[in-house]
């Protein structure tokens, strides 16, 4: 039986900002703590969005941003583990 007074679990993920998002956030990435017993990509994005400003604008629901976990495209429902690399990808324009 878990001790209900224990703090909820926290994991740390490496977040990578690419292209337009790197410019918008003036950062190429950071270490981010994500709380919760079953942390997901969506929870990490919600934590970033809650900062307001460019974060709220660029990550607003409906904005075309894709996620990748450890170099594989992942949906918002995907779970995160400690040490994962979560990348935020604007729409791609290569070729």
């Amino acid at each position: 039986m878990p001790d209900s007074s224990a703090p909820s679990s926290v994991i740390t993920v490496r977040v990578v900002y690419l292209a337009r998002l790197r410019d918008a956030f003036a950062s190429d990435g950071e270490s981010l703590a994500v709380r919760g017993d079953a942390p997901t990509v969506g929870a990490a994005i919600a934590a970033l969005r809650a900062r307001g400003g460019a974060w709220a604008d660029e990550l607003a629901p409906g904005r075309a941003v894709r996620y990748a976990v450890n170099h594989e495209v992942a949906p918002a429902e995907a779970s995160l583990r400690n040490g994962d690399e979560l990348a935020l990808l604007p729409p791609v324009t290569g070729g």
């Binding site: 410019d23 075309a64 990808l89 791609v92 324009t93 290569g94 070729g95």
Partner: peptide, 22 residues
Amino acid sequence: LKTRAPFWKKERTADGTRWVDA
């Protein structure tokens, strides 16, 4: 490749630089 490979183009024009839209 055009829709799935992570590449991004930033163009330089007379008005400055801009990320290309998909």
